[in-house]
Write a protein that binds this DNA or RNA. Structure first.
Length: 286
DNA sequence: TTCCAGGCGTATC
DNA sequence: GATACGCATGGA
């Protein structure tokens, strides 16, 4: 992994990484695109950028920007602002999955025509390796819900606690005390998940080490966690790339392109492929 | 007004 | 095991 430390910034040259496609594609809900005249942009000490986001992994904040290099290059300069080399190596390199070669991955996927189109449509998608608890909560909230409202609920949750609450904190709450979230019927599910973890009935590190089927079953003992949410918790929170969440959009993909099942070229990486397909089907028809 | 959103619990057959 | 329905909320 190639990077430069420039004062309090970390600078890398990357292909296969677009901030819009990765941070605003429905896998994480705490990233916000910032304007060029915002307070955050000014704090970047005059560094030029095409696009920039601020957000969090659990309770670590980050400001990240992207600038295309040259006219016809597919490379970008990615800058992580106001961070440290320690946080970069311990948190962000892992979070942004920088050790994975997405060019090679997309070549493999592209032996299938639909996957080839999906990869070309958004070549800068990467899987985010999110925190287990944050991902579980996020996708409990996601059920029968739309992305802007998911973001709103999570934003109110973090605003209330001054950061993402621990499961011990959430376990103390009640449906009434969580009314400010306006999460609807999902509030009781969050509380059930928090209680099971807080009381030690479940342990997300244990679940992460289980075989896929046992991990699914274990997660689904939480009220409000069914097949889809369990699959998302495994994929986004535990980087189980063989997990394949099927929501209304992926159902459309299956019906339209894969009536006879998924292609072999995504085997073992179905979850990553799913991210390209999800983005593709949601945006091509617009 | 009705429909829908990164589903799930429950009742019923 | 399959299918039908209700569920909180808010934007289109």
């Amino acid at each position: 992994m190639n990077y430069k430390v420039n004062g309090s910034d970390i600078v890398l040259i990357q292909r296969d990484f677009d901030l819009d496609e990765t941070l605003d594609c429905g896998q994480a809900f705490r990233w916000e695109r910032i304007n060029k005249d915002s307070r955050e942009a000014v704090s970047m000490s005059g560094i030029e950028f095409d696009k920039a986001y601020k957000g969090y992994r659990l309770n670590t904040p980050l400001l990240i920007s992207q600038r295309k290099i040259g006219k016809n290059s597919d490379e970008s300069q990615i800058t992580l602002h106001n961070t440290s080399e320690g946080d970069f190596l311990e948190i962000w390199a892992d979070y942004f999955d920088l050790e994975t070669d997405y060019s090679a991955l997309k070549r493999e996927f592209s032996s299938d025509d639909t996957m080839s189109s999906a990869c070309k449509f958004a070549p800068g998608i990467r899987m985010l390796k999110q925190d287990k608890w944050e991902a579980l909560c996020s996708f409990i909230i996601s059920q029968n819900n739309n992305i802007p409202r998911i973001k709103g609920i999570i934003s109110r949750l973090c605003g209330h606690y001054g950061g993402f609450p621990s499961y011990d904190e959430l376990a103390e709450e009640s449906v009434e005390s969580l009314a400010f979230l306006r999460a609807g019927f999902r509030a009781k599910y969050l509380i059930d998940a928090a209680k099971k973890l807080s009381e030690g009935e479940l342990d997300l590190d244990d679940i992460a080490s289980m075989d896929l089927e046992s991990a699914r079953k274990s997660l689904m003992t939480i009220k409000g966690v069914g097949p889809k949410v369990a699959e998302c918790a495994l994929l986004y929170g535990m980087y189980r790339t063989d997990a394949f969440p099927i929501d209304v959009w992926i159902k459309r993909v299956m019906a339209e392109y894969y009536p006879n099942g998924l292609p072999d070229c995504i085997k073992g990486k179905e979850g990553i492929a799913q991210q390209y397909l999800f983005h593709y089907i949601r945006n091509i028809e617009k």
